[in-house]
Design a protein around this nucleic acid. Structure first.
Lengths: 417, 417
DNA sequence: AAATGTTTGTGCGAGCCTCATACTAACAAG
DNA sequence: CTTGTTAGTATGAGGCTCGCACAAACATTT
């Protein structure tokens, strides 16, 4: 039963986005009816992401609106093959017409996710349901590649991935292993690859492939990946914390990805936890990064005489501790506490109450996570109604690619009001 | 020329608020046309706060909307005597009809601000233009007053202040010198006054005086005071930092006051800057509070033999340093750095880029502020487009009372979408 | 097999809001 | 006195959600 649909389109039609976003300077601009439409469309889709396949009636109940409103929002999306109706599901014992759950169509336009590392680029397609396909990976040629070589590698991977898409992707999201200017959509600095400093990758991709492109730094990408496709699904407040050779994080506060001006903030690795402490790679002393990265772990492992200290990480440390290797258990505990210190500070500052751990500690599994959680709870004064929860993120490259795609999704769903 | 106005009321009609706020669970609930009205009304008023007296045409230009829209929003507010038209202002050389600036009417309903300290309560009326009147202050009787005595003191001060109001106040905002549960509108804990722990002050005030009442902890009140009546006017991102006997802070991020669950967050004093450092009053070690409060300053002053070390504070320290007292200048510098450490961490974490200093350091004036600013800039890696600015807040009790009133205003203007 | 109750999803008109257009009012400059 | 410019207002159109009524599709009971 085709219903006459109004000419509205959902915000994922790329020509809509820039105009809407621009006119909707938050705090200044006023709202209009058409913006209400876009915003509600975004919210319905967001609820769908959060809950999985859901009927119109259920969506209406949850949103506290009339069923006709949901129908009106959803019908154009069905026409555009963004959504599909699933098989009718049995009504409850009370009877009634079977509900038709709505979910994202496999025919919906995918998102191109990209991970840019100092020595390689990885691309893929991500469906709105969160499945990854058409993965490509191209390493940069030499030791110190030129920007032209880097550009060529990126173009090559992107072109191949995009050619696998059945419909035009909604956009390209890029997770960058370094500092990013999200406004200019440019790389500010990538350690070990200074050639990329100032690289306006966003503009390059838009010019070359005619798609909207968004850049953000790696931890923020992990967070949005968690938010749409992972453990952060449906959450309104949480933080993602990445540990490894470096340390970073991102915040989702009040239902919005938090970005400071041009994407500042989240430089958790370089917050002070030990004034005048050890020298950090950044030149300052006592950064959290000096005590909660695998670099610290290696140094400690060597100091207490653990085998192959250069190959230590959370996974091995947990195994060694489990095997009763002398010193391993206490090192594990100390490492967990060091990680916990920074998380405790974050909790005291913005109190997200939920933390998704990424990077090295993921290898340590539940044991590592529980160790960290225990220390955080001990380090934060208890407060009524403020339970602190922890979760372990996806495996590393999957998390980054989903996250990169999530950047585009965040932009599309978080219609700024 | 009276225009027929629709029966809409601005959000400050108290019976509107609870319903609107409740239905507008962010991230879940959808928007409706009537909510657009409320939201836009709030935004226009917010813009008016930010810019001072402004004509309809100017408001329309800034908001990027039609002039008729502003007229439609503003007319009922004029009818209700929330706003008044000022004297026509001369047009520019180009000519044209003179603009009639709009501003808050002195006849508009005031806000009752309250500051609750361990040993006293202070109340006042605040107009929307930010002037304070009808100040009352009642100290609690004995050393360890009973809750009944505290309640009586609060009622007495409030009653007297409220009786001075020409129109029914919009609500009562309370700044509490302790931990607060903003959801339950209750005091969680006030140092030195354990009798207040668990005190459901918000309900008490609403029951007793029939007005909406909001509680928040002191630093957050300072922040909203700055936002609406002080140096934070018009800002979209900034932080308020209070130093003194204790240390606290609050964040305004993306045009919204940030609160964690039930008002958590902002416990900056108990973030770690020195793992395993000095013992803090909270029982942990190395809290920021151990190195950036006047307690630390007193200990250091005594250690280097400054006169009357127990009476030291930023004001005296600046004076001493100016007078060339040995050790004073370096102590000033060290104190400034200690304060700067925590601010640097905040900057690295959420990057508000603008800090308003409150409490003890205000006494140190520009010299103190510049010393802190210098250290922060040295401690934070520079980043393009990320200048860090500082300002000094209002004098202490004025800031707190304006802030308490600001809590009510924030709730009314920040219509949650 | 028929009747009853329940739930889903869809027209339809009403109400609220903003927008574009056209109009009047009030000023400056020539 | 005319022309140009800006402020504020009246009016009708278009978007959106809402409440109500209705058809469709099921379970349960009689």
């Amino acid at each position: 039963m085709e219903r006459e649909t109004s000419p509205q389109r959902w915000p994922m039609d790329e020509e809509d986005i820039p105009a809407d976003v621009r006119t909707a300077r938050p705090g200044r601009a006023l709202l209009s009816s058409s913006m209400v439409g876009s915003a509600n469309r975004g919210r319905v889709l967001q609820t769908l992401f959060d809950l999985g396949p859901t009927s119109r009636a259920e969506l209406a109940r949850l949103a506290g609106v009339n069923r006709t409103t949901i129908s009106g929002i959803v019908q154009p999306l069905l026409d555009q093959q963004v959504l599909v109706e699933g098989k009718p599901i049995r009504p409850s014992e009370a009877g009634g017409k079977p509900a038709r759950p709505l979910w994202f169509s496999p025919e919906a336009r995918p998102i191109c996710g990209m991970m840019l590392m100092p020595d390689a680029v990885q691309t893929c397609l991500v469906t709105l349901a969160g499945t990854i396909s058409a993965e490509e990976s191209v390493r940069f040629p030499a030791e110190n590649p030129t920007l032209a070589e880097v550009t060529r590698a990126i173009e090559q991977a992107t072109k191949k991935t995009l050619s696998a898409a059945h419909r035009e992707p909604l956009g390209i999201g890029v997770a960058v292993g370094g500092m990013v200017d999200t406004d200019r959509r440019a790389v500010i600095a990538v350690n070990l690859a200074p050639v990329m400093n100032g690289f306006e990758l966003g503009d390059m991709l838009t010019r070359r492939f005619g798609l909207p492109a968004l850049l953000d730094h790696h931890p923020r990408a992990l967070l949005v990946g968690d938010r749409w496709f992972g453990k952060g699904r449906g959450m309104q407040n949480f933080a993602a914390v990445y540990t490894g050779e470096v340390l970073g994080g991102a915040l989702y506060l009040g239902g919005h990805l938090y970005r400071g001006q041009s994407g500042a903030g989240g430089e958790l690795g370089h917050t002070f936890v030990q004034v005048d402490g050890d020298l950090c790679a950044c030149g300052r002393r006592g950064c959290w990064e000096t005590i909660a990265t695998v670099g610290w772990l290696r140094r400690q492992a060597r100091a207490i005489g653990i085998d192959a200290p250069d190959a230590i990480n959370s996974a091995r440390l947990v195994a060694l501790a489990g095997a009763g290797v002398p010193g391993a258990a206490s090192l594990l505990d100390l490492y967990a506490r060091n990680v916990a210190v920074g998380i405790a500070n974050l909790q005291q500052t913005v109190a997200p109450n939920f933390y998704i751990l990424h990077g090295d500690v993921v290898g340590g599994g539940e044991i590592m996570a529980e160790a960290i959680a225990g220390h955080v709870r001990a380090l934060v004064p208890s407060r009524s109604g403020g339970e602190i929860r922890f979760a372990i993120g996806e495996t590393e490259d999957r998390a980054a690619l989903l996250g990169a795609a999530g950047l585009v999704l965040s932009e599309l769903l978080q219609f700024p009001l």
